[in-house]
Each structure stands twice: as structure tokens, then as C-alpha cells.
């Protein structure tokens, strides 16, 4: 039983970690602002998985769900503001393929 739980934890962690890598890669490689937000969303997905998983394996699903619900509510507002800023950039430039993200990486 303990072994099973341990294995499930490890498998889910690997999946969360892979989604995390995909999100970071998508965020770093793209110049499209909406794609950058989608990359951030993928990162948030992996974090939601980690929180729920931690709650499940330690038997605190109540706490983990409360945290995950708060996280989801905040996530929506952040995404809405980010998309609002992208739309404002679009009204200025008529494009969202700006090279805005280039100097973040420096």
C-alpha cells in the first residue's frame, strides 16, 4: 500500500515536472504575447497538480482543495489582466508579435 502510494506520487510528480518544462520552454522561446500567457497557464496547471497530489498522499485533501480553489480564482484574475494588457498593446501596434519579451531573458 505504502509502495503503491509512493509510486503514484512519483509518476504524478514526473508528469507535473514535464508539464512545467513544457511551460517554461514555451514561455522562453515565443515572442507572441498570448503564447507567453498560455505558457504561464501550463506552469499553473503543473502547480495545481502538485498541490492536489501533496494533499492526496498525506491525507489532507480538504486543505489541498481549499488551496487549489483559491489558486484557481486568483489565476483567472491574473490571466484576465494579462490579456487586457495584451489587447492594449494590440491597439497601439496592431500586432502582438512584438519583441517585448526579448530583453526579459537578459
Amino acid at each position: 500500500m505504502v509502495n503503491d502510494m509512493s509510486q503514484l506520487f512519483w509518476m504524478c510528480s514526473i508528469a507535473g515536472f514535464l508539464v512545467f518544462i513544457i511551460g517554461i520552454y514555451g514561455l522562453l522561446v515565443t515572442f507572441n504575447l498570448i503564447r507567453a500567457i498560455i505558457g504561464l497557464e501550463l506552469l499553473t496547471k503543473s502547480v495545481t497538480l502538485f498541490l492536489i497530489l501533496a494533499g492526496y498522499v498525506t491525507g489532507q485533501t480538504g486543505l489541498a482543495q481549499a488551496l487549489a480553489i483559491t489558486l484557481i480564482v486568483i489565476e483567472v484574475v491574473v490571466i484576465a489582466i494579462a490579456v487586457g494588457i495584451v489587447l492594449c498593446v494590440f491597439r497601439h501596434n496592431r500586432t502582438i508579435d512584438a519583441q517585448l519579451l526579448r530583453n526579459i531573458k537578459g
Binding site: 495545481t48 492536489i52 497530489l53 494533499g55 492526496y56 485533501t61 489541498a64 487549489a68 480553489i69 484557481i72
Partner: peptide, 11 residues
Amino acid sequence: ILIFRLASPIA
């Protein structure tokens, strides 16, 4: 679906 299977239906 995964979260549901991890005993967290409301989340």
C-alpha cells in the same frame, strides 16, 4: 479528471 481521481472532487 486526474484531480477527481486523487479524491478531490470539488477542486
